[in-house]
Each structure stands twice: as C-alpha cells, then as structure tokens.
Amino acid sequence: MIEIRKAQDRGIGRTNWLDSRHSFSFANYYDPRQIGFSDLLVINDDRVQPAMGFDTHPHRDMEIFSYVLEGELEHRDSMGVGSVNKAGDIQMMSAGTGILHSEFNHSGSEMLRFLQIWIVPSQTGVTPRYHQKHFPENEKRGKFRLVISPNETEGSLPVYQDIRVYAGLFDGDEQQKLEILRNRYAYIQIAKGSISVNGTAMNEGDGARVRDETDLLFTGGNGAEVLVFDLRPNELPSIG
C-alpha cells in the first residue's frame, strides 16, 4: 500500500527569512496524524534567504542529515567543524550526548533550499560525530544511490539506526525498480520534479508511506529528484 501525502497538505513555517514545509509535526505545526513514520521524525523542506539562517542551537540524541537541493549551506558546530555544503552534498550529524550548531545560507545573493531530516537513533549517549560527502549526479542518474546506512555500505554515510536512504535522479525514459523486503516499510519524498511510483503520480513536495510492497517501480520522471527511506516496520518513532 502506498499512502500519498500531498505537498499542499504539509505544515507551513514562515519568518521574514525562512519558508519551510513540514511533512511531519514540527515547531508550531502539530497534526496528530502526522507525527513521524517508523524512525523518521522530521522532514523539513527549507528555503532560506541570502545570508540568513538558524543561529546556534542545541541537539541531543538525534540523527540529523541535510540534503542540499539549491544554493550553499554553511554549517558550524561545537566540535569545531566548519563546512559549506552545495547541491549534491549530504551532511550527517549524530548529536549524541549533545552538540551546538548553526546553519546559514552561505551566499549573500542566492537562495538556499535544503531538506533537513531527523531520525530517532537506536543508541543514545553516543559521542557526537559529523560526516559530509558529495554524491555526484552520475551516481544517481537513472538509478538509486545508497547515501546513508548503518554500516557505511558502498561508501554511504553512517547512521545510528537500522535505516537506509537512497537518492535518485530521473527524466524521460529512465526507470528503476527498488526492492523492499517483506518485513520493511519505506517512505518516499519527491524533492524536485515529478515521477510515477507503481503507476501513481507524485509531484514535488509529495511524500508517501509505503507498507506491504515488495517492489517500487519509478517511471516517467520529469526533472525528478527522489529520496527513498528503507525503514523498520514501525508506525511511529519511539523517543526517550
């Protein structure tokens, strides 16, 4: 079963410098039907004005990754990391025992758009860590590239949870089948463009909970950039 969550149904968060869409309950947006899925707690689609961003703030016992779609994301944290992430880059941060960080639009003239995703970890109280990697277009063109996994399989970034994240780019006749094991769930997020999944049309910003499906066939992409999360078969995140 593929349960679509349309882009226009997401929560909205706006300030004078931020335009955000929340797939799940976050900050001032609360929907009791949308408080995460499996170990996914947050998927925010953030658009940040030039030279603006999130001031230094704390995180603890959370796996946080950012997927840059447009522009440049500047990151600084209490571990001494300072980095700039561009389109195609992924940063993965395990907050563990506690970390302070800030995130800004590195550009003074261009917009920044990125997905920020929170995953509930399988282990708490770990030593904080940070990873960053660029995944070039040719590794995702017309196929899915494993970008996050618990064991850093195929050069993916590590995460403290039984979750695997795939990224793919699809246009025209490009198609790909992704196998989902019978005892697993999945979540699909259309970051850009549009595509059909098992014959169901999905557009930019749409998400989908997937249960009891063993194959996902992606066809008819139009500038599509897609994330697929291979998840434990739990309905809601377990926090604390």
Results as ranks from 00 to 15, higher is better:
1 M>L: 11
1 M>E: 14
4 I>Y: 08
4 I>P: 05
7 A>W: 06
10 R>Q: 09
14 R>S: 12
19 D>S: 13
19 D>F: 06
19 D>H: 05
20 S>G: 14
23 S>Y: 11
24 F>S: 09
26 F>H: 00
26 F>Y: 05
29 Y>D: 11
32 P>N: 11
36 G>H: 01
37 F>R: 00
38 S>D: 08
41 L>Y: 12
45 D>M: 15
45 D>A: 14
46 D>I: 04
47 R>A: 12
55 D>T: 10
56 T>P: 01
58 P>W: 04
59 H>W: 06
59 H>N: 09
61 D>S: 03
64 I>Q: 03
65 F>V: 02
70 E>H: 07
72 E>R: 09
73 L>Q: 04
77 D>S: 10
77 D>Q: 12
77 D>K: 07
80 G>R: 04
83 S>N: 15
83 S>C: 12
84 V>L: 12
87 A>F: 06
91 Q>Y: 14
91 Q>V: 13
92 M>Y: 00
97 T>G: 02
97 T>A: 09
98 G>P: 06
99 I>G: 01
100 L>Y: 06
100 L>V: 02
101 H>M: 04
102 S>Q: 03
104 F>Y: 15
109 S>I: 12
110 E>A: 15
111 M>F: 12
113 R>C: 07
115 L>K: 00
115 L>R: 00
116 Q>C: 10
116 Q>S: 14
118 W>N: 04
120 V>P: 04
120 V>L: 05
120 V>N: 08
123 Q>V: 07
130 Y>G: 01
131 H>D: 14
133 K>C: 01
135 F>A: 01
136 P>R: 04
138 N>A: 15
138 N>R: 09
140 K>M: 10
140 K>R: 15
142 G>F: 12
147 V>T: 12
149 S>V: 07
152 E>N: 08
152 E>S: 14
154 E>N: 11
157 L>G: 02
161 Q>D: 03
161 Q>I: 09
164 R>F: 01
165 V>D: 00
165 V>A: 01
165 V>F: 00
170 F>C: 09
172 G>E: 09
174 E>T: 07
174 E>G: 03
174 E>K: 03
174 E>P: 02
177 K>D: 12
177 K>S: 15
179 E>A: 14
180 I>M: 05
181 L>M: 14
182 R>G: 15
184 R>C: 10
185 Y>P: 02
186 A>W: 02
189 Q>G: 02
191 A>L: 12
191 A>T: 11
191 A>Q: 08
192 K>T: 11
193 G>H: 07
195 I>H: 02
196 S>N: 13
197 V>F: 08
197 V>I: 14
198 N>V: 11
199 G>Q: 06
199 G>W: 06
199 G>A: 11
200 T>A: 13
202 M>C: 01
202 M>F: 06
204 E>Y: 08
205 G>E: 00
205 G>F: 06
205 G>N: 03
206 D>P: 02
207 G>S: 06
208 A>F: 08
211 R>D: 07
213 E>H: 07
215 D>I: 05
216 L>V: 11
217 L>F: 11
218 F>N: 01
220 G>H: 04
221 G>S: 09
222 N>L: 14
223 G>K: 09
224 A>H: 10
224 A>S: 07
227 L>K: 00
228 V>Y: 08
229 F>G: 07
230 D>C: 03
230 D>V: 10
230 D>W: 02
231 L>S: 08
233 P>R: 13
236 L>P: 08
237 P>W: 13
240 G>W: 06
